[in-house]
Amino acid sequence: MEVRTIKVFTTVDNINLHTQVVDMSMTYGQQFGPTYLDGADVTKIKPHNSHEGKTFYVLPNDDTLRVEAFEYYHTTDPSFLGRYMSALNHTKKWKYPQVNGLTSIKWADNNCYLATALLTLQQIELKFNPPALQDAYYRARAGEAANFCALILAYCNKTVGELGDVRETMSYLFQHANLDSCKRVLNVVCKTCGQQQTTLKGVEAVMYMGTLSYEQFKKGVQIPCTCGKQATKYLVQQESPFVMMSAPPAQYELKHGTFTCASEYTGNYQCGHYKHITSKETLYCIDGALLTKSSEYKGPITDVFYKENSYTTTIK
């Protein structure tokens, strides 16, 4: 009895394709271990004539594949690729409408935090270190965002349907971005203890939790000093293409032309909904596939993004 075979390709990165001759009487799992086709788990399936010449994702289970996976995804987590594939199996079914010149995501599976993050990423200057993220990001900007969303979920250790947080998501993504040249110098002034300067680099240099107003941050924000008295913390120097200011959701007025974009969060910790506000020729609110415009805006804002380049204080 002759062994019926077909020729397929296996890959971990969709760049390096490895030619395989597979036995049609055995499952993919018996031949390769966990195997995925377009995100779908085909591990328990036997090869079919229609699979001839198709590319299958496999887990990096030998040295060659491990090197290829690390170079593309910059992670050695053995569960990463499987999590990416199972997320992709959902995100490829989502709709990605162009809204006001940006790629958004039609609401499904509690994905409003991903839509808000995706919209924000198209408006701030950011370059990702893992080629996987950078490639998928370019495709997302062009309207094909399924891979990018699935990668975000995998890097953030999230599953489809789980509630997510924009600030946490951005923080994970910033860790995989090139923020080497970003720098922030802060000064804390206390009447009792004097003053202390701190220099922050990388992710810490672009994120701040405690106030939404970048102007206020430049002037000074009140913080408790270690001595128990009130101290003032203010920005001395900022070198970065953008800054992200966050605070627990509270009524906040966004003035046209003073910011790049913002995240609105309605609801409580267990259950809520994100919308995205962007400042173009007027203010726009993007909620999944829905767009509304207004000249002014007041609502429960939790993150505001500002364009920056270089700032030095005039406070002496």
Rank of each mutant, 00 (worst) to 15 (best):
D62A: 08
F217K: 02
K46I: 11
E144H: 11
S263E: 00
D62W: 07
Y214C: 04
M207P: 03
Y155R: 02
K280D: 10
A142M: 13
V22Q: 06
R4H: 10
E52D: 12
T5E: 10
R83V: 04
L119R: 01
M209S: 15
F56T: 05
T260F: 06
T258H: 11
Y57V: 10
F70L: 15
F80R: 05
M1I: 03
A205V: 02
E239H: 13
I315T: 15
K229C: 09
S213V: 05
S240C: 05
T159W: 09
K54P: 04
V221A: 04
C225V: 00
A250N: 11
G267T: 11
L291S: 15
K293Q: 14
K7W: 09
Q196M: 12
V185N: 01
A142V: 13
E2N: 12
L121R: 06
K255V: 15
F70V: 10
T55L: 06
Q238T: 02
L118Y: 02
E281S: 07
G29Q: 08
N147T: 12
Q216S: 10
Q31H: 11
Y234P: 00
Y214K: 01
I152N: 06
A231S: 05
Y172P: 01
S171I: 11
I45C: 12
M85L: 12
P97W: 11
G257H: 08
G272A: 00
C149I: 10
E215T: 07
S181Y: 12
E308G: 07
V203A: 12
N61Q: 09
H18S: 07
V188I: 11
E264H: 04
Q197P: 07
P78E: 12
V160R: 05
C271I: 12
V12Q: 08
I124K: 04
P249I: 02
T75L: 06
L118T: 06
L59E: 15
V243L: 09
T55A: 12
N309T: 15
V206L: 04
A132I: 04
N61P: 06
I105A: 06
E253R: 09
K229M: 12
E281Q: 05
Y252S: 07
R139T: 11
L102G: 06
Y137R: 03
K95W: 08
F70N: 07
N187E: 14
T64A: 14
C193D: 02
V160P: 07
K201V: 12
T278V: 13
D38W: 09
T282V: 12
Y84G: 04
T192W: 07
Y269H: 15
N147R: 09
L283S: 00
A142W: 10
E281Y: 00
N129D: 09
Q31E: 08
T11E: 07
A87L: 07
C190V: 04
E68C: 05
R139I: 08
L121N: 03
H48R: 13
G29E: 11
G82V: 15
R184V: 02
K106H: 11
V21C: 14
I223T: 12
V189W: 08
T169F: 03
A247L: 03
T192K: 11
K219G: 08
A177L: 05
D77G: 06
Q122L: 04
L126V: 14
D165S: 15
T43F: 09
T198M: 13
F259M: 01
Q195F: 12
S25P: 05
E144W: 06
N16Y: 10
A115G: 07
G194P: 07
A250Q: 15
F9Y: 12
L290P: 00
G210V: 00
Q197W: 06
K201H: 14
I315M: 15
T35A: 09
Y269W: 15
V42T: 09
E239A: 08
L88V: 07
P241T: 09
K219T: 12
A40W: 14
C271P: 03
T282L: 11
S86E: 15
Q270I: 07
V185H: 02
V243S: 02
A140I: 13
P78N: 10
Q222A: 10
Q31F: 13
H74P: 04
E52H: 14
K280F: 11
N49M: 12
N14T: 10
E308F: 08
S181D: 14
K233R: 14
Y252H: 12
Q134A: 12
M24F: 11
A150M: 02
T313F: 14
D180M: 08
V3I: 12
E308N: 09
F70A: 10
A136G: 08
T260Y: 07
V203F: 13
G53N: 15
K44C: 15
L235Y: 00
K307H: 12
D180G: 10
V188E: 06
R139H: 12
T27Q: 12
W94K: 05
Y274I: 05
F70G: 11
I277F: 00
K44N: 14
N157R: 09
L118N: 04
K191C: 13
A108Q: 09
L235K: 00
N268W: 08
T91A: 06
A289C: 10
T43P: 06
P130D: 03
Y284R: 00
S181I: 05
N49Q: 12
S181A: 15
C112V: 05
I301D: 03
Q197Y: 08
K191Q: 14
A145W: 06
L88D: 04
N187H: 11
S86N: 13
N110K: 05
L254V: 01
K44V: 14
D165A: 06
I124Y: 02
E215N: 08
E68Q: 09
K275S: 13
Q216W: 03
I315D: 15
E125T: 08
D62L: 07
M170T: 03
Q195C: 13
Y57R: 06
K7M: 05
S295A: 14
A117W: 04
H74W: 05
S25M: 11
V3G: 12
E125L: 03
K183C: 08
V166R: 01
H176M: 09
L102A: 06
P97I: 10
F148Q: 01
H48C: 13
L133R: 02
K106F: 06
T198K: 14
K316G: 15
S295C: 10
P249M: 03
F70Q: 09
K106A: 15
G82S: 15
Q20F: 08
G143E: 02
V206Q: 03
T10P: 06
K158R: 06
L200D: 09
E2S: 09
K95R: 10
F217T: 06
G220S: 04
Y113D: 02
A142D: 14
F9E: 10
V3R: 14
C227Y: 02
V22I: 11
A250D: 11
E253Y: 08
V3W: 13
T116S: 09
N111I: 01
T312N: 10
S310G: 06
H90G: 11
N178D: 12
S79V: 12
T5H: 11
N268Q: 14
F70I: 08
E296N: 12
D41N: 10
G164S: 05
V160D: 01
Q134S: 11
T278H: 08
Q197N: 09
Q196D: 08
T55P: 07
L102C: 07
N16G: 06
L81G: 05
V243W: 03
A250L: 08
Q251G: 07
N16R: 10
